Simulated assay, not measured.
Amino acid sequence: MKNLSILLIILLVSCGSSKKEELQTLKDEVMAIHDEVMPKIGELRKARKDLLLQADSLMESNPERAAMLTTTADELGDASESMMVWMRQYESEFEGTDDEIKQYLEGQKVAIQEVKEKMNGSLAKGKAVIEN
Score class of each variant (00 low, 15 high):
residue 3 N to D: 13
residue 7 L to W: 11
residue 11 L to F: 15
residue 12 L to S: 13
residue 14 S to N: 09
residue 14 S to M: 13
residue 16 G to D: 02
residue 16 G to F: 11
residue 17 S to R: 10
residue 17 S to A: 10
residue 18 S to V: 10
residue 22 E to R: 02
residue 23 L to A: 06
residue 24 Q to C: 12
residue 28 D to A: 15
residue 31 M to Q: 13
residue 34 H to K: 15
residue 37 V to T: 07
residue 38 M to F: 15
residue 39 P to K: 02
residue 46 K to P: 08
residue 47 A to V: 15
residue 48 R to P: 07
residue 49 K to R: 13
residue 52 L to Q: 13
residue 53 L to R: 11
residue 54 Q to M: 15
residue 54 Q to V: 08
residue 59 M to V: 14
residue 59 M to I: 14
residue 59 M to D: 10
residue 59 M to G: 05
residue 61 S to E: 12
residue 63 P to T: 03
residue 64 E to N: 11
residue 69 L to R: 07
residue 69 L to Q: 12
residue 70 T to H: 12
residue 73 A to Y: 06
residue 76 L to N: 00
residue 76 L to P: 04
residue 79 A to N: 04
residue 80 S to P: 07
residue 81 E to D: 11
residue 82 S to F: 04
residue 83 M to A: 05
residue 86 W to S: 00
residue 87 M to A: 14
residue 90 Y to P: 00
residue 91 E to R: 02
residue 91 E to H: 06
residue 92 S to R: 11
residue 93 E to P: 07
residue 96 G to F: 01
residue 99 D to M: 11
residue 101 I to M: 00
residue 101 I to A: 02
residue 103 Q to T: 14
residue 103 Q to M: 11
residue 106 E to V: 09
residue 106 E to R: 00
residue 107 G to E: 06
residue 112 I to E: 01
residue 113 Q to L: 10
residue 114 E to S: 12
residue 116 K to L: 04
residue 119 M to S: 04
residue 121 G to V: 00
residue 121 G to A: 02
residue 124 A to R: 03
residue 125 K to F: 08
residue 125 K to N: 09
residue 126 G to N: 02
residue 130 I to A: 05
